[in-house]
Amino acid sequence: MDPYYLVLTTVTLASIYGLLALGISIIWSSLGMINMAQGFTFAVSGYGAWLVAQNISQSGIAVIAAGVLTGALSGALIGAIAFIPLYDKPNFPLRSLIATLAISLCGGQFLLWIFGPRVKALPKIFGYGSYHIGTAVISREKIGSIVCSVALLLITLAWSKNSRRGLEIRAMMQNPEGAALVGVGLRSTAMSVMMVTGAMAGLAAVLLSQNYFVSPFAGATPLVKGMVVALAGGLGSVSGALIAAVLIGFIEAVTAVGLGGQYVLITQFLFIIAVLLIRPRGIGGMIEHSRE
């Protein structure tokens, strides 16, 4: 087994998984909502990027910007439908979960209706060609996707740590009523959370579409993967989600090399179930626990 190849695959997968999981994790902890429509955001951003690539510009920046922007808009739409009318009503977590599920069902059919069942391909925004690192070969698109997602992750983390909006969001994660009492508008903050996480999903969509195609239901698998990674990391824990992304990416790389691609999901699930049996609150819960 080639260690360089393993590390590279792990990093590639971990950066994508981190992007997918972090959005779900942040929404859960700050809004108390499980966003099952994240997959829809993913699919719709792919189409947004495709439309721009077809009609306006093939340049990498334009395509990425289109994906990110569409993602943010879609996030705002989901927030406006599933969060704003429901957040102060009884039984909110279940009702919002079902509302986001309904949006994802509606949205998938809507995309199918508009764009038809044929899959679309995005332009190769990072170009072709590859580099040698140690004994492994890495393509430009892999390097590009790692750099982009790590950059977005770092920007998001720094923003949430240092900016005023970030402090507002962290305050809302901890205690929504307390946040209202210090003058944080829950609705506007929630909408900004939805837009930021939507933008993350949009970027992930563009990056993943370098290898896969854009289709109405392309979001289902990334959604499930992002969700289980967030679950293993501990819903609401940013560091936990990142650690889980690395671990699960590593397991996927090892399984694909050692056993074969069809066993990837099984080993991943066995790992996640094992983690959750030991720590029902995920890895992030484990860290918080040992800190006390």
Partner: peptide
């Protein structure tokens, strides 16, 4: 308020900053 409505994971400094959101 009663029960303080604090943000348990945030530091005291963060709390003081959060009081100054205007």
């Amino acid at each position: 308020p009663q029960g303080d409505a604090l943000f348990h994971g945030l530091t005291v400094a963060d709390h003081l900053d959060s009081g100054a959101f205007t």
